[in-house]
Protein backbone atom coordinates (compact mmCIF):
# COMPACT_ATOMS: atom_id res chain seq x y z
CA UNK A 1 0.00 0.00 0.00
CA UNK A 2 1.25 3.47 -0.91
CA UNK A 3 2.08 5.69 2.00
CA UNK A 4 2.55 9.47 1.99
CA UNK A 5 5.78 10.79 3.38
CA UNK A 6 6.68 14.42 3.81
CA UNK A 7 9.69 16.61 4.39
CA UNK A 8 10.17 20.23 5.31
CA UNK A 9 12.93 22.73 4.76
CA UNK A 10 13.21 25.59 7.23
CA UNK A 11 15.14 28.76 6.44
CA UNK A 12 16.93 28.83 9.79
CA UNK A 13 18.33 32.31 9.24
CA UNK A 14 14.86 33.82 8.77
CA UNK A 15 13.19 31.83 11.56
CA UNK A 16 12.33 33.98 14.61
CA UNK A 17 11.82 31.06 16.96
CA UNK A 18 8.18 31.83 17.79
CA UNK A 19 7.39 28.10 18.34
CA UNK A 20 3.96 28.36 16.69
CA UNK A 21 4.89 25.66 14.16
CA UNK A 22 5.78 23.25 16.95
CA UNK A 23 2.25 23.47 18.32
CA UNK A 24 0.76 23.14 14.84
CA UNK A 25 2.60 19.94 13.86
CA UNK A 26 0.37 16.87 14.42
CA UNK A 27 3.29 14.42 14.40
CA UNK A 28 5.80 16.34 16.58
CA UNK A 29 8.36 16.69 13.81
CA UNK A 30 9.63 20.12 14.81
CA UNK A 31 11.74 21.07 17.81
CA UNK A 32 13.57 24.22 18.76
CA UNK A 33 17.34 24.20 18.31
CA UNK A 34 19.58 24.77 21.30
CA UNK A 35 21.81 26.84 19.00
CA UNK A 36 20.79 30.29 17.82
CA UNK A 37 20.85 31.77 14.33
CA UNK A 38 22.72 34.98 13.54
CA UNK A 39 19.79 37.08 14.81
CA UNK A 40 19.97 35.26 18.14
CA UNK A 41 16.83 33.17 17.82
CA UNK A 42 16.60 29.50 18.79
CA UNK A 43 15.33 28.37 15.43
CA UNK A 44 12.91 25.58 14.61
CA UNK A 45 14.28 22.46 12.94
CA UNK A 46 12.78 19.15 11.82
CA UNK A 47 14.09 16.94 14.63
CA UNK A 48 11.93 13.93 13.75
CA UNK A 49 11.65 14.30 10.00
CA UNK A 50 10.77 10.63 9.50
CA UNK A 51 7.40 11.41 11.12
CA UNK A 52 6.55 14.20 8.62
CA UNK A 53 3.44 13.65 6.51
CA UNK A 54 3.81 16.85 4.47
CA UNK A 55 0.51 18.18 5.85
CA UNK A 56 1.53 21.88 5.42
CA UNK A 57 0.27 22.88 8.88
CA UNK A 58 3.62 24.26 10.02
CA UNK A 59 4.14 26.21 6.82
CA UNK A 60 0.74 27.87 6.75
CA UNK A 61 0.91 29.08 10.34
CA UNK A 62 4.51 30.25 10.11
CA UNK A 63 4.16 34.05 10.30
CA UNK A 64 7.47 34.54 8.54
CA UNK A 65 6.85 32.07 5.73
CA UNK A 66 10.18 30.31 6.25
CA UNK A 67 8.96 26.71 5.81
CA UNK A 68 8.82 24.88 2.48
CA UNK A 69 6.99 21.55 2.31
CA UNK A 70 7.53 18.48 0.10
CA UNK A 71 5.46 15.33 -0.12
CA UNK A 72 5.92 12.03 -1.94
CA UNK A 73 4.13 8.70 -2.19
CA UNK A 74 6.28 5.79 -1.12
CA UNK A 75 5.58 2.07 -1.44
CA UNK A 76 5.27 0.45 1.94
Amino acid sequence: MAKVKGAIVIDYEKCKGCVICVAACPTSVIEMAKEVNSKGYNYAYPANIEECTGCNNCAIVCPDGVITVYRAKVEA
Partner: peptide
Protein backbone atom coordinates in the same frame (compact mmCIF):
# COMPACT_ATOMS: atom_id res chain seq x y z
CA UNK B 1 12.70 6.93 1.82
CA UNK B 2 14.93 9.65 3.25
CA UNK B 3 14.03 13.31 3.56
CA UNK B 4 16.67 14.22 0.99
CA UNK B 5 14.93 12.00 -1.54
CA UNK B 6 11.61 13.73 -0.90
CA UNK B 7 13.01 17.27 -1.10
CA UNK B 8 12.82 17.56 -4.88
CA UNK B 9 11.03 20.12 -7.05
CA UNK B 10 8.47 17.55 -8.25
CA UNK B 11 7.42 16.89 -4.65
CA UNK B 12 6.99 20.54 -3.68
CA UNK B 13 3.60 21.13 -2.07
CA UNK B 14 4.01 24.45 -0.29
CA UNK B 15 6.32 27.41 -0.51
CA UNK B 16 6.06 31.10 0.16
CA UNK B 17 4.17 32.86 -2.64
Amino acid sequence: MLAKDIIKPENLVYQKT
